[in-house]
């Protein structure tokens, strides 16, 4: 049961977006998010919608997959819409009851905020759907390499991320094993109130942590034995190289951002 959990929601298929360099996708997503915050009128949002639809089309990921990601943030979405709806001051009052007023400006603001959040989430989940966690860490490491100059241990952070990814399934399996062992000895994880259930988890967490630490020691030794000594003088088996498609994508995103700024200025 517990093994069914999947972390990182990569959608396996072959598309232009899948083949792009992870760095390109990271920058692209960032540009898209920035553009959403620039957008200030209907035309801007229309442009963003068309752009996003185009990207989704190119990615060959079914729309239902991307929409699914929205469910998790539904509450956040409703709260921010609510705040904007009721707390924006404006001239034209549409509805008034008790201490609340809904103004035309508020309605507009709330609607834009909802669109902005929905686009933002769809845009960034499109990136995780088309990039394997490994490519993502690679992209982060190479793309943020300049941070090394200000002593940010970017290689170490990327290494930690990829090791964490490798051990997630192992630790999940282990949790399952410990749970079964405890259940065989009469532990009860399914009844009782929230506090009782949380308490029942302690006998799972303690052995899990101990074993995780033991694994960490073993792994550190194995890495040392294979001459690991940080990112210095390290070569790569799969170095990231920009292709023509990446350059084209950068150009396209630059054009998109320029169009967004222009639309916002002119209207």
């Amino acid at each position: 049961m517990i093994r069914d959990i999947t972390i990182g929601q990569y959608y396996q298929t072959d598309s232009l977006l899948h083949r792009l360099d992870p760095r390109t996708k990271l920058v692209g997503t960032l540009v898209f998010i920035v553009s959403l915050f620039i957008a200030g009128n209907w035309l801007c949002y229309a442009l963003a919608a068309v752009w996003l639809a185009g990207m989704i089309r190119l990615s060959r990921v079914p729309l239902s997959f991307i929409v699914r990601g929205l469910k998790a943030v539904m509450i956040l979405l409703l709260i921010s819409v609510g705040f904007n709806l009721f707390l924006t001051n404006g001239e034209t009052v549409l509805v008034r009851f008790w201490i609340f007023r809904i103004t035309l400006e508020g309605l507009r603001q709330a609607f834009f905020m909802a669109l902005r959040l929905i686009f933002l989430i769809m845009g960034s989940s499109l990136m995780t759907l088309t990039t394997t966690p490994n490519q993502l860490t690679d992209g982060l490491e190479t793309g943020l390499g300049f941070l090394k100059k200000i002593r940010v241990p970017i290689h170490e952070i990327a290494m930690m991320m990829s090791i964490a990814l490798r051990f997630i399934p192992i630790l999940i399996e282990e949790t399952d094993k410990i749970m079964k062992a405890q259940m065989a000895r009469g532990a009860d994880f399914e009844t009782g109130n929230l506090i009782e259930r949380a308490k029942a988890l302690v006998p799972i967490l303690v052995p899990l942590f101990i074993s995780a630490f033991r694994r960490a020691t073993d792994l550190a030794m194995a890495m040392e034995a294979r001459c690991y000594h940080g990112g210095e003088a390290r070569t790569r088996m799969k170095p990231l190289v920009y292709e023509t498609r990446d350059r084209m994508t950068y150009l396209a995103f630059a054009a998109y951002l320029a169009a967004m700024i222009a639309l916002n200025r002119i209207f």
């Binding site: 966690p133 490994n134 990829s162 090791i163 990814l165 490798r166 192992i170 694994r215 073993d218 792994l219 030794m221 194995a222 890495m223 034995a225 294979r226």
Partner: peptide, 11 residues
């Protein structure tokens, strides 16, 4: 080493 899981680094 002994434990195969704890010495494989790559995914």
């Amino acid at each position: 080493f002994q434990n195969p899981d704890n010495q494989i680094i790559g995914t």
